[in-house]
Design a protein around this nucleic acid. Structure first.
Lengths: 104, 104
DNA sequence: AACCGAGGTATAGCATCGCTAGGTATGGAG
DNA sequence: CTCCATACCTAGCGATGCTATACCTCGGTT
């Protein structure tokens, strides 16, 4: 549905779903799909690198878990990640309001 | 204020201000600043290439005008540009709604 | 005269980052 | 055994906003 217009907002989305509960990558994709009413169908090549980036930035932590022979890397939001989510949410609201004002 | 989070939405903003009245590049920058309450202070290196891109895509047309020794390139939205603006507005609304849903 | 800020246009190159395309592997259903 | 869903990974592409820099005119200040 949407292309590169997601730029700069993906991190907030991922942090938001992980703020509810720890999930592994594939489940993050499903959660985004579910929470958006199917409109956000992000490819793995988008989400996995984003998770790595967020973990490298200290906003997520992860550990391997094995469920019925399948290895999964489960991501959990850190305290810094939660703070950052707050910042991102505010930024999104400001941004969205600004665009609305100009487009109205 | 905002960085690269504008990605994919700039064209809509420019089309929106030019849908009101034809403007030259510098005036587009000022109009965006005014309409956003000063929050959108876009550098020239962002806006000028965008105008060129939009004209190349047939969404804008332009002509030179000279006012008191100063040359200006005045941009005007085309019929295709107006249609595209409608599409972009719808897309923005869908996008914005989707992000809100996930972030809520 | 020299300077400087505001107005005005332009573009080469950088940086970011979502996405495409391809790869690997397991388990269950047909 | 084949197929599909599940599950992970990454090299490289493409799009595009931004930095930095350049060039020009005009009016006011020094």
């Amino acid at each position: 549905m949407e292309a590169q217009e997601l730029k700069g907002h993906l991190d907030a989305l991922i942090l938001a779903v992980l703020a509810r509960e720890p999930l592994h990558g594939y489940a993050v994709i499903e959660a985004l799909k579910a929470r958006s009413g199917g409109r956000l169908a992000l490819p793995e090549g988008t989400v996995y690198p984003a998770l790595h980036r967020l973990e490298a930035g200290g906003l997520l932590s992860s550990e391997w878990s094995t469920a019925s022979g399948r290895r999964r890397r489960v991501y959990r939001i850190t305290r810094r990640g939660e703070r950052e989510l707050g910042v991102r949410r505010d930024r999104w609201r400001a941004f969205s309001t600004t665009i609305d004002a100009v487009l109205a």
